[in-house]
């Protein structure tokens, strides 16, 4: 099956995170993707990080989510992320360290197979969350 892509764009505001979750849940249901609840959580956490740390150079203050699917991978590409210099500030905490901060990034690391940041000085960069679908299927066997 060829690759498919779905797009959503919302204001980088906490009140819009529900809309991002609804978009992702609908697409994942349509595509019959397993682990959809965990994937929605990972995407939500990444978008919440944008709301908290978004690049001030983005004038329109919007989050762009692109969900790409191939037989091998599921990829969330999330534009409007923070400045490259802010990336070290967005780090997971150790699960044994019981405090409120850093939990969302730890969730993303637990759920996704790869997380990458692609800097872009003009647009604030993009965050990519990747799940290897083929590997997950092999794990299920």
């Amino acid at each position: 099956m060829p690759s498919r892509a779905y797009l959503a764009e919302v204001p980088a505001d906490a009140s819009c995170l529900r809309a991002v979750r609804a978009f992702a849940a609908a697409v994942l249901a349509k595509e019959q993707i397993d682990e959809s609840e965990r994937l929605v959580l990972a995407l939500d956490e990444a978008c919440a990080n944008i709301v908290k740390h978004r690049c001030p150079t983005i004038e329109d203050g919007r989050i762009c989510v692109r969900l790409e699917l191939t037989d091998a991978t599921l990829r969330f590409r999330i534009g409007g992320f923070c400045k490259p210099g802010d990336v070290p500030k967005v780090k997971p905490r150790d699960f044994a360290d019981i405090r409120p901060g850093g939990l969302g990034t730890a969730f993303i690391g637990e759920i996704m197979d790869r997380v990458a940041f692609e800097p872009d000085p003009e647009r604030g960069g993009a965050m990519e969350l990747v799940m290897e679908r083929a590997r997950r299927s092999e794990d299920d066997v």
């Binding site: 959580l41 956490e45 919440a48 409120p100 969302g104 730890a106 969730f107």
Partner: peptide, 13 residues
Amino acid sequence: GYIDSSGVATLIQ
């Protein structure tokens, strides 16, 4: 129906 890390953090607080 849904909770994220900020919700869990609130429960920790």
